[in-house]
Amino acid sequence: MSYYLRTVLLAASVLSLLYVLSKIRKAQIRLEDSLFWIFLSVIFVVMGAFPQVVYALTRLIGFQAPVNLIFLMMIFILLIKVFLSSIKISQLENKLDTLVQELAVAENLREAEEKEK
């Protein structure tokens, strides 16, 4: 890994780590949701600080260059994250629909009851 890549990796991951932590501080993200981003930044900090880890992994898997490994890892992790987010959105939409529906039905039943009185 070139020094340039290491520096970028390190700087970017440290900055994003700080950003996530500031969001936690301002209570803008739930702790359980922030864990993913914290782990991710820490992993990239480690990779930037100790490239030996990346070299070892690269040899193990048989990649030509360490940078390929880093890119591929990022893509995989992000894809999985996007899919998990998509599931979450589906569930949220479903919950929202249910809520709106139950609310509207309850309102109708209440009005009908009042009319009977």
Partner: peptide, 25 residues
Amino acid sequence: YNLVDLKVNTGLAGAFQTGMKYAYA
């Protein structure tokens, strides 16, 4: 009219499902 009023748009499926919930209730 007998109205169940959804405050936000939930799509045909959502509106129909509301009717089903009403029918079941």
